[in-house]
Design a protein around this nucleic acid. Structure first.
Length: 164
DNA sequence: TAACATTCCGCGC
DNA sequence: GCGCGGAATGTTA
């Protein structure tokens, strides 16, 4: 089940499973016509409730505010290592940052800092799972698989300074 | 096995 | 200070 979310930054697409929100896609200019009529199945009341939470959480974050409540996240995709990393990311508050090394240390593998980058890139729920708040050491911007422009934009929304 | 969203250190400018 | 090269490093497909 996937549903659109209109925001000031464009139309995101949220994907749901029976366990919760499984994926969030950035707006894609090559796909402006939202598959509205294509969604043949009506969302269940549960998914509508989740979608409502997702919408508010996403809009809050894009406005630089901390979401009051998140929908249940289906992180069953992904390896155990990746889920550990994503859990750490969820605890980074709005406007705060961590380095890849700090995240690695938090999950008890201080030397896996390189792999943390990989887990961030595999994050299926950007923005809500704040992969953009992970910077390289000494606050350099590092990378971002969905495009550095998105990372810069998200950091700017939260007034996070970087060295670059 | 090869690819990384890293980090650190040493060098030359 | 900056850029560059190279090494160590864990996880993934």
């Amino acid at each position: 089940m996937h549903l659109p979310i209109s925001t000031t930054a464009g139309t995101f697409i949220a994907h749901y499973t029976t366990h919760g929100l499984a994926r969030l896609d950035f707006p894609d200019d090559r796909r402006p016509p939202v598959p509205q009529s294509k969604s043949s199945v009506e969302p269940s009341t549960q998914i509508r409730r989740w979608h409502d939470l997702t919408t508010r959480a996403l809009q809050a974050t894009l406005a630089g505010r901390s979401p009051r409540e998140l929908p249940p996240l289906d992180l069953s995709v992904g390896t155990e290592f990746q889920r550990e990393v994503w859990q750490v990311l969820l605890q980074i508050a709005v406007g705060q940052t961590q380095s890849y090394g700090e995240v690695a240390a938090k999950i008890g593998r201080p030397k896996a800092l390189r792999a943390v980058g990989g887990a961030c890139g595999a994050n299926p729920i950007p923005v809500l799972v704040p992969c953009h708040r992970v910077l390289a050491a000494n606050h350099r911007i590092g990378g971002f698989s969905s495009g550095l422009d998105w990372k810069r934009k998200l950091l700017a929304i939260e007034r996070i300074p970087t060295n670059s």
